[in-house]
């Protein structure tokens, strides 16, 4: 183990202590409509955004994704699930999931990202391995920017969590944007 050697070398070579800056958040203050900006940014990153009510969630999903049969829902806000999962589910068995419906904890207006935790998805692989993804988000749970977001999620169980902004995508072939790389092929965000 080279632990001591590395730490000693850092100690010997580092410069004199420089202060850790205070973050003056006033400089990032913006008077924007959080919900409208969030909606615009979800669309910008390639997601569908639909404002609705809890009662209409299932109708909207059925209209949006009419041909799905292997559906996992980890939220009691949707009854469309056809396959149930728990934390002991082998993620490899989710290979043929057409649609996953999960709840998000927090939306970020500046970039359209949504915080999804390990307990939201039950099986960590779910929001990635599913062909298409629906995230349900409370329209009151939208913050301005990432600095605010980390304040909101500060008090959490730290195991795994992910900010998801749009469907998976790549531009690795001649810079042509193609939606649907390894993760979900589409993302629909339902604001309720």
């Amino acid at each position: 183990m080279s632990r001591e050697a590395i730490l000693n070398s850092v100690k010997k070579n580092k410069p004199e202590l420089l202060p850790l800056p205070e973050i003056n958040e006033v400089k990032f203050k913006e008077d924007v409509d959080l919900k409208e900006t969030f909606k615009n940014n979800v669309a910008l990153v390639g997601g569908n955004i639909i404002e609705t009510t809890v009662a209409s969630i299932d109708d909207i999903i059925k209209a949006q994704y009419p041909d799905k049969t292997n559906i996992v829902s980890t939220t009691n806000k949707s009854k469309l699930g056809t396959i149930s999962v728990d934390k002991n589910t082998d993620p490899h068995t989710l290979e043929h999931i057409d649609l996953a419906i999960v709840e998000g904890e927090l939306g970020v207006s500046e970039n359209g990202a949504i915080w999804v935790t390990a307990s939201n998805s039950v099986v960590r692989a779910l929001p990635f391995i599913t062909n298409d993804l629906v995230i349900i988000l409370n329209k009151k749970s939208i913050c301005l920017h990432m600095l605010d977001a980390y304040k909101v999620i500060d008090n959490r169980e730290r195991n795994f969590g992910v900010f998801i902004s749009g469907p998976s995508k790549t531009a690795d072939i001649e810079q042509c944007l193609v939606v649907g790389a390894h993760g979900a092929m589409s993302l629909s965000v339902l604001l309720v």
């Binding site: 990153v45 970039n111 795994f160 992910v162 902004s165 998976s168």
Partner: peptide, 17 residues
């Protein structure tokens, strides 16, 4: 790339059970 954030920003603290 000019995106406001990458599609996935994954936060790992503990291994899955």
């Amino acid at each position: 790339t000019g995106q406001p954030i990458t599609t996935y920003s994954s936060h790992f603290n503990q291994a899955e059970e």
